[in-house]
Amino acid sequence: MTITTSAPPSATGTKGPDGRAQRSRKHSFREIWWIYVFLLPTLLGYGAYTVYPLLASWWYALLDWPGFAVSGEFVGLQNFERLLTDHQFWNAFGKSLLFLVIAVPARVGLALLLALWLNSKRTPFSGFFRTLFFLPVVTTGAIIGIVFTLLLDGGGPISLGLVWAGITETPTNLVANAGTSLYAGIAVWVWKWLGITMIYWLAALQTVPQDVHEAAMLDGANGRKEFWHVTLPLLVPFLVIITLIDTVSALNVFDLMQTLTAGGPAFSSEVIEIFIYRTAFAATVPQLGYASAAAVLFGLLTVIIAVAQGAGVRWARARMGGGS
């Protein structure tokens, strides 16, 4: 049954629906104005530390600004033109994309496997293991970078373990070898953030109704068939959201990579953020405008991904029947 109410027509006939809506909004604002007061600190912080730097970086990208000068000189799009022919920039851009392409599927896939294992009723000490896998998430990225520098260097336990196992003949410095440094960074990044993606998956798995599992079992599906034909299709909307969240996360790896490899050796692990940092702070003459232009181009990539994320989320909600 549906109850509908309708407002009586105006006695004078002078106030139409617009006037009523305006009054209603005003009335509504009187009741909820305090919400905006509580939001104000966040809005101010967001404005000062997100919106302002974002807008400023767009302006700086149009300046020739040596770091030791108080201000820059407007040069239009020259910085962007220079970036297009800067192989160091494209090297870093490519490394960031490679990082993303390898790290995100690895993190999403491994976390799903972990979540499935920990979600099983037959897994002992699942609570303990969940905590264990989540611990790196709450550890500072820079600290993890420093610790893994020691663990992965030529005299570290991992290198010696590889020799002991006969996988390598001599100790290998995995973070200081141009062939392995980026992949070492990817591996450490996946390990560090695996726990949070695992939590996402565990939450997603709770949404799969138990009766669906039971129905599949009654129909004779084994564990693998049940996963591929029942569980996984139900998880697809979550897969989209989790992948997009992890993708954005994979574009913010400065603290870890700077402490782990500093982009080296020979720029083999220089992701775009390290390029920006090096150009803005560590160059002989720091180039703030040029670094900002690189950041803007990089930001465009992030925006494209964010738009894709928005579309993905909308699609996933529609698939889940969650409305708009």
Binding site: T149, L150, L152, D153, G154, G155, G156, S159, P171, N173, V175, A176, N177, P265
Partner: peptide, 8 residues
Amino acid sequence: VVHPSSAS
């Protein structure tokens, strides 16, 4: 003769 961790 160089320390193997030198590169880090």
